[in-house]
Design a protein around this nucleic acid. Structure first.
Lengths: 218, 218
DNA sequence: GTCTATATGCGGATAGAC
DNA sequence: GTCTATCCGCATATAGAC
């Protein structure tokens, strides 16, 4: 257990937000788990939503920085040459699975939190998260458009969303799949591999064909 | 506005659960929107979680029935022959986009609700939803395994999750993407088409290659 | 910085008149 | 079936002693 109260509260909040979501978690619950006094949460963070913001920032900023770093590296390497889909997908997905981006990541709580950040549409949650995500979204959108120039830009953006959705859903439900379907019981790297294969293939798919619509083949 | 109070409450609850989620929505908010008395919610449904269950059932049961019907039809058609990935994907995705499965679907509220049902892990929400989803999950898992027999069963199950994630995330965020990325402004059928292309390609991807792991190519 | 105590309001649920 | 009024617990937040 971390020594200072502020960090303990941050950790406890992360755990509970990941498990139950923002609205369903009370400060009482958080401070109890943190073995801290109820009032200390407001003393250190000011309000519940400010605490949420601190929790998100602590995790998202390093992951997004790592994503951008990998993308920079990749773009520098290929120069003005051809940009392949696969390394771009990896640059986006891998940092989430990487437990050592910054010291202190405790699995699998963090994975769930990331998943929830993408799926939660509570306005407090969303506002904070969107602010932190805009740059990454734009950079990766451009990178995928460059890797798949034949695909219309709008469809590329949707594919970015599909990728995020696959990632987020996997993170959130990872520990519940056993209740729902036979648990495949993979380790993290295998899961990242499976997700990468799926997304890379999706990104490489042909765009809409002439004459075809979404309701075709029915 | 529907005539009877019970339906109005159901509609209002659906709207608010879709917009803000279960925990963040109060019965007061729901009954006000429904122009009904606070006490009437408990009179008609017994409790908040029972209301949630009614909301989910009303929408999920017809969609899942339609999914199973399409899959039955497909399996009957191909008999013991080859089962292609694409129509299975379509059988899963299309009923969600079909606004006329049962009369009374009001877009795009319903799409958001479906998205939330897949992403919400609040235990009330999850329990109800899992119960309704188990059969569909198993049937489609088997169908995909049959369509992609070379892929290990565990990976097929994960791909099913990836598909659900893409779908759910798209539903939940459809109306927010404008805040986040340039809005592609597609219509529903185009969106279904884009999602189908992505998922079909993902499902058709090769499985893990010998010697490769998820952390490869880094 | 940490605690107790408390202000203040919203939450779900229900009793009981009509 | 629908209403008012209310119970009662839990929520966030803060005041103020130590």
């Amino acid at each position: 257990m971390p020594p200072d109260t502020k960090t303990r509260i941050l950790d406890a909040a992360e755990t509970r937000f990941a498990e139950h979501g923002y609205s369903a978690t009370s400060l009482r619950d958080i401070t109890t788990l943190a073995t801290a006094n109820l009032a200390s949460a407001n003393y250190h963070f000011g309000s519940k939503s400010a605490l949420l913001e601190a929790v998100i920032r602590r995790r998202v900023v390093p992951v997004n920085n790592e994503r951008l770093r990998l993308l920079d590296e990749l773009e520098a390497k290929v120069g003005s040459g051809r940009l392949d889909v696969e390394p771009v997908v990896r640059a986006f997905l891998a940092p989430v699975f990487q437990t050592t981006v910054e010291s202190g990541f405790r699995e699998p709580k963090f994975m769930q939190l990331v998943g929830r950040m993408h799926s939660e549409t509570n306005s407090d949650f969303r506002d904070v998260f969107l602010r932190l995500f805009v740059e990454v979204g734009k950079r990766f959108g451009s990178a995928f458009s460059r890797a798949r120039p034949e695909i219309e830009a709008g469809e590329v953006m949707w594919r970015l969303h599909f990728m995020i959705g696959s990632l987020a859903h996997t993170m959130v439900w990872e520990r519940y799949v056993g209740e729902m379907l036979a648990p495949p019981a993979r380790d993290r790297q295998e899961l990242l591999g499976a997700l990468t294969r799926f997304v890379v293939a999706g990104m490489r798919a042909e765009g809409v064909q002439s004459g075809e619509t979404g309701s075709a083949a029915r």
